[in-house]
Design a protein around this nucleic acid. Structure first.
Lengths: 123, 123
DNA sequence: TCATTACGATCACAACTGTAATCGAAGAGG
DNA sequence: CCTCTTCGATTACAGTTGTGATCGTAATGA
């Protein structure tokens, strides 16, 4: 498990995560349309690879497939976040936030949300 | 600029970032020794690629090279952090921290540090 | 029924990665 | 001087990624 999802593949996963129902390859292609200028073949390739990696599932719908995520977005995102924190910050989150802050990366809204979050964590 | 550094290459960069003086390929190999079981050839390859990417600089020391980072660790780390936050959290940091918190990823120390950090940011 | 279309499956191909081995020149040792 | 070692440079080679094209087959429309 825990096969890595590449950057391009992520676009496909996002389309599927965003849909409450399984999608055909066509539909995935349509929904990605804006973000990436991909041919439908490229999307098919991505779908095939993601299936092979086991992060997608498919059910047959006549002669087509309907694709659906086999891993939750939350799990993926949590894993990636942890990887980054482990690789670059010795596993500790505070320095990450500090870095984001330095680079103008934190909006006042972010700061407010973080405060609320911390309050909750301490409770 | 801003060439991407691969995971394996990062080990080499860390060795150089950790040294106050430029290092020979041999020395880099020695310092990595623990973490990765690499042949000296492999380390040379990494050094060559990092040079080509422009993230390392070298000066000649007789017949050898002394290698030294050409980008600051801080800059690299900030860039990678931003990439992650952009890709997975729509550019906002708060959800990242929330995810880390969910996965038991935040120690009490982390939380304390974050609080201190936020206090400073508001000042 | 026959050509066209719509699918999934398979193949293509260059760039990047991980992990080295080989080559040619410069020093070091005898 | 000649050989052995040491460097950097070049080459290797399989796996992944980004981007598609081709193939075979099943459905569809004329």
């Amino acid at each position: 498990m825990a096969e890595r999802i590449s950057e391009a593949e992520l676009a496909v996963m996002e389309a599927l995560w965003a849909s409450p129902v399984p999608l055909t390859a066509q539909e995935v292609h349509d929904r990605i349309g804006d973000a990436r200028d991909w041919s439908d073949r490229t999307v098919k390739t991505m779908l095939g690879r993601l299936l092979a990696k086991g992060v997608l599932a498919h059910e047959e719908d006549g002669r087509r497939y309907l694709y659906r995520p086999a891993v939750k977005r939350d799990a993926y995102v949590a894993g990636e976040s942890r990887r980054l924190v482990d690789r670059l910050f010795g596993g500790r989150a505070a320095p990450l936030v500090a870095h984001l802050a330095e680079g103008e990366g934190l909006s006042p809204q972010d700061i407010a949300e973080l405060e609320a979050l911390l309050k909750e964590l301490k409770a």
